[in-house]
Amino acid sequence: MKRLRPMPPDQLDPAARALYDRVNAGPRGASMLDEQGALIGPFNAMLLSPALGDPLQELGAAIRYRSSLSDRCRELAILTVAAHWSSAFELQVHEKIASGLGFTESQLGAVRTGEPLSLDDPQEAAVLRVTRALVTKGDLDDEEYALLPEPVIFELTTLTGYYATLALQLRVFRV
């Protein structure tokens, strides 16, 4: 059962409404609204504390739209974190995106279950290995660390922490 009620824009205080407008005006836009115009997923919870929710959603926008990771690598990493945390909302949203990027149902299933997955692209394979190590061990050994350039390691650790935060919030608020 959901714990957090939808918050339609006409019921928001000015700070929450400003955050709502920023999320809605960005690239995530209307895809993150319910039928009454309330934000869904993690964005609804961010309205509870705009002072924290706004920088958090901005970090998410930077991860999604301004990182150096290819779209496929980014979605692979997001899905790996979502699967580890059993985050149904994130899995649903990002599996649809990954399917549009050419991931097969078999590949998505392997990411979802943590089964071995052979990927033809060496960077995708490295991203999967590194992200799985981050979510399972919270660290990288020297071999894993050397698989990707340091800026990519930075981006993956940031992505992993961000999506782990969202997974925790989604679980607590029963989204």
Rank of each mutant, 00 (worst) to 15 (best):
R74E: 10
E35A: 14
E105Q: 07
G100T: 01
A38K: 02
A126Q: 00
R17V: 10
P116T: 06
Q36F: 00
D10R: 11
G109P: 05
Y20M: 14
E150T: 00
P151S: 03
R5M: 09
Q169K: 07
R3H: 11
T165P: 03
K2I: 09
D139N: 09
G26R: 06
L170D: 01
Q36N: 09
R74V: 05
A82W: 02
Q169W: 13
L147N: 02
G53S: 10
L52P: 05
G29K: 02
D121P: 06
L166V: 13
Y163Q: 01
D21K: 01
L48G: 09
L156K: 08
D10S: 12
P151K: 03
E143W: 06
M7H: 15
G138V: 03
L119F: 00
L69V: 12
L170E: 01
E90A: 04
A18R: 15
I153G: 02
R64M: 07
R132Q: 09
E155P: 12
R174L: 09
V130L: 04
E124W: 08
D120P: 10
A167E: 00
S31K: 15
L39D: 00
L91V: 10
L140I: 06
A146E: 13
S31D: 15
A18M: 12
A88H: 08
E155T: 14
R74K: 11
G37I: 06
Q57C: 15
P151F: 03
R22N: 15
T158L: 14
L159E: 04
A167M: 02
V175Y: 04
E150F: 04
G138F: 07
A45P: 15
V93P: 05
Q169H: 12
A77M: 01
I153H: 03
E75K: 13
A18F: 05
D10T: 09
L166T: 10
R72T: 08
A98M: 04
E105C: 02
A77C: 04
D141M: 03
V172F: 02
D34G: 01
Y145M: 10
Q11R: 15
A82P: 03
A15N: 13
